[in-house]
């Protein structure tokens, strides 16, 4: 554990909490892609199958449980409790375009052709593209509430901080994981355009609005 990794985890946690609080306090999930949230829930389930078989630390286990509960809570709020506010007309990204390639790739490129390992690899590939339905939704409506953009910024920062963590671990511990690193870079790159808009607009008090 190093400071970059810890900051990444905290950024991830903050993103998840921002989203839950936004939905809970406004009693609305307008502008949020339920499809991205389903993909994140699937990601966590596939990755944390080792929760009871591979003990790492209290921190690790607690965080896994928190991420799982929070992602299921978000999906519950969107599809059950505040279903009426869910903007499904704008949430039209086809999930099979992300899930099927992630399944195929995880069967072909993995560290070890074993059940838990393939599920882990699938979760890494799926997470790297899970935000696409959300970004697609923002581009379709042409704007995002500032709270939604804070959420996206925290979520993007998480993977960017993980990259710094991997560079640090490579030099300090000789540790590297090619699958996680390459997928993590893809995931971070997807946020670049958004980061640019966030810094040039949202931080200056303007609404995130895409150029017409």
């Amino acid at each position: 554990m190093n400071v970059f990794r810890l900051s990444g985890d905290v950024a991830h946690l903050i993103a998840i909490i921002i989203l839950l609080l936004k939905i809970w306090t406004s009693r609305s999930c307008a502008g949020i892609s339920g499809k991205s949230q389903i993909l994140f829930a699937v990601t966590f389930v596939a990755r944390y199958l080792d929760l009871f078989t591979n003990y790492v630390s209290i921190y690790n286990s607690v965080m896994k449980i928190v991420y799982l509960l929070a992602s299921f809570g978000t999906v519950y709020l969107m599809y059950m409790k505040f279903k009426a506010t869910y903007d499904h007309n704008h949430d039209t990204f086809r999930l099979e375009f992300l899930i099927l390639p992630a399944i195929a790739l995880s069967l072909i490129i993995n560290h070890d052709f074993a059940v838990i390992e393939v599920f882990w690899t699938f979760s890494i590939y799926l997470e790297s593209v899970a935000i696409l339905p959300q970004l697609f939704m923002v581009s379709k409506t042409g704007e995002a509430e500032s709270i939604t953009s804070h959420y996206l910024f925290a979520l993007g920062s998480y993977r960017a901080l993980y990259i710094v963590n991997w560079i640090y671990r490579y030099y300090m511990e000789g540790f590297y994981d090619m699958i996680a690193t390459l997928a993590g870079i893809v995931q971070t790159v997807l946020y670049c355009d958004f980061f640019y808009l966030y810094i040039t607009k949202v931080l200056k008090g303007k609404k995130l609005q895409l150029p017409a």
């Binding site: 790492v56 965080m63 560290h111 511990e173 590297y176």
Partner: peptide
């Protein structure tokens, strides 16, 4: 080390 597949990370 091509380590323990990053399983200590979240």
């Amino acid at each position: 080390i091509a380590a323990q597949f990053g399983k200590d990370e979240l």
